[in-house]
């Protein structure tokens, strides 16, 4: 056992651990982007040059909320890297609430859960319904996991789990959040802007 204990002490240095973690995270995002690209391709395969009639104001508001949330996420990361813990926690919370607002907007209004008359397009409405709910649903699922991630990081940060030298958890959370944001930058035009609105029959 003495030899085991000896080897045990030679854990990897933090710098090396950090480098490997970064590779792991970015590879995961590369992998995820293939899945999102598959959905993106499905949209063009099935919809072609048409798109359904969607609430343009809602789409624009949701997109703005998500983009602004990325700004606050960046603020949070910069703040912890400079040791401003209060500001870090505050920015993280702002990001969380903006993300939550986006999620409520998609599920409550785009999907019509909060609308008395229900959604304009239902999941079973041909390729329009399938792709719209498929793309927004998969993205919303990632927003949801991102929100949980933010809460976990916020909680750890509150307990003093990060320092200006060691804040890998914050970095991972921020990169993931920006990635989810970036996916929406592709999905928003694909769903709301590209193609002609289909004629109503």
């Amino acid at each position: 056992m003495s030899q085991l204990a000896h080897v045990h002490q030679e854990e990897m240095s933090y710098a090396r651990r950090l480098r490997l973690n970064r590779w792991g995270l970015w590879m995961f995002l590369v992998s995820e982007s293939f899945m999102f690209a598959g959905l993106f391709a499905a949209r063009f395969y099935l919809w072609g040059n048409t798109r359904p009639e969607l609430d343009q104001t809602l789409g624009l508001v949701l997109t703005s909320i998500l983009l602004v949330s990325s700004f606050f996420m960046n603020r949070a990361e910069v703040a912890i890297s400079q040791g401003h813990r209060k500001e870090f926690l505050r920015s993280l919370l702002v990001t969380f609430f903006l993300g939550a607002a986006f999620l409520v907007g998609v599920v409550g209004f785009e999907w019509g859960l909060f609308l008395p008359e229900g959604p304009h397009i239902r999941p079973s409405d041909g390729a329009f319904g399938a792709v719209l709910y498929g793309m927004t649903g998969m993205h919303a699922f990632h927003v949801l996991t991102g929100l949980i991630f933010i809460l976990v990081v916020w909680n750890l940060g509150r307990k003093g789990g990060f320092s200006p030298e060691r804040y890998w958890g914050v970095e991972a959370c921020a990169v993931y959040w920006h990635f989810v944001d970036l996916v929406w930058v592709f999905f928003y035009p694909a769903l709301y802007l590209i193609g002609e609105v289909a004629k109503l029959h």
Partner: peptide, 8 residues
């Protein structure tokens, strides 16, 4: 309904 909104 899908036909009504012109879905492919």
């Amino acid at each position: 309904h899908a036909k009504a909104i012109g879905s492919p």
